[in-house]
Structures are given as C-alpha cells and as structure tokens.
Amino acid sequence: MSEAALLNVKNLEAWYGESHILHGVDFSVRKGEVATLLGRNGAGKTTTLKSIMGMVAKRRGSVIYEGVETIGLSSDRIARLGIAICPEERGIFASLDVRENLLLPPKIKSGGLAIESILDLFPNLRERMSSQGTKLSGGEQQMLAIARILRTGATLLMLDEPTEGLAPVIIEQIGLTIKKLKESGFTILLVEQNFRFASTVADRYFVMEHGKIIDTFANSELSANMEKLHAYLGV
C-alpha cells in the first residue's frame, strides 16, 4: 500500500471466545490523515480497533505500526509504541475526578499536548476539573475521553464512535476538534455509524461488512460512491 503508511493491517483475524469476529481485515492508515471505518452494527469496526490495541484475547494476522509488528504484543506494550484509544463506552472512571481522569494515562513519548492547550481545545472541562468523572454530561465525558489521550505523546488516535448519543451542537464541536487535531499532526482512525459526521472530517473511508473491509475510497470520490454507500450502510 502507501509508502507513508503509519499503520498497516494485513489479514487480521480476531475471536471473542468461540465466535470468529474478524475474517482477514486489510487496510492501512497514512501518517497525518483521518481514516474512517464505516459499516453496520456488528460489522467488526470496534473489534478492529480493539484488535489493533491488543485488547482482544485471540487474534491473528499482522498489524505493523511504524515498522514494528505488534500482533504478539500485550496492549500496554502496543500503547507505548504510540497508539491510544478512546473507547466507544468512553471509559471515564467513576471513582476518579476529571483531573485524575485527564492525568491518568502515563506519558509514553515526548510531543504530547500540554494541559493548557488541551483545555483550550475543550474549555468546558476547565471548570469541571474537580467534578467526579461520571457527573459530567455525555458530551463532556466524550471530550474528556478524547482529551486524556492527547497529552501522552501518542501519534495515532483511535476514536470509537465519538458522536454516539450526542446533541448536534456537540457533534459539531467534536468535528472541529478532530480537524484541529489533524492540523496539529495527529493521525486519526475513526469508527463511525454517523456517516454525515464522518464526511465532514474524513480523508478516506473503509467500509466493513462481516469482519472484512469490502470497499475503500477517498473523500474526493465520495459523491461517485454515494449510491453504493447507501446500500452498504442501509441508510
């Protein structure tokens, strides 16, 4: 694939217990782009992110990040290579306040954002620093979940459905944030059901079905592929 691939996923398979979820996923993410995994519920999007992160017990194939094969590594080792995840359920820790949640992920490399610039991106969090994590609104929790992976020095951010269940005005804010993060040099792998949102931020799309990538196109080819996409996503 592309020369400048930051992440190269080849023939990735994954299982939850006995059920075979991913059946050979192939795609790559270029440095500095926003890549988006699209697909219906149960297509394997979240499992793909979790498999890249090493959070699935049984996986096979190849995931190469910056030239390092990560398929045999534990998730803490993978994280230390520079990959960070913002999970679908947001994963805000209830027994920690906002500041503790924000400062929880350890720094793994230099080059992460400073707390001040993170709070400039998410001004809502500034006043809520000592609130309990789960007392935040859904939108604030989502912002906190993104904010806390920005200071660690990770360069590939995997965001799992960051707009799920949020009000349009907050979705818009998250879209702006993703664009800003791209400008600051982060590479983003996004999982989205909300295609309208994805189309405002994504550079490339990977469509998943039954645990495989079935189609790939760039944002510029979007209008030409619209009909196909509607069929894939059932929207």
Binding site: D76, L96, L103, T152
Partner: peptide, 17 residues
Amino acid sequence: ALLRAATENPALVRAFG
C-alpha cells in the same frame, strides 16, 4: 488513581500503556 482506575477497568488502563 491508577489503582482505582485499574479496579474499574483494567483492560482500558492497560491500553493506556
């Protein structure tokens, strides 16, 4: 805070490195 977080969701804390 790390201990409390790991009590709640060890998999995610591990995925933070």
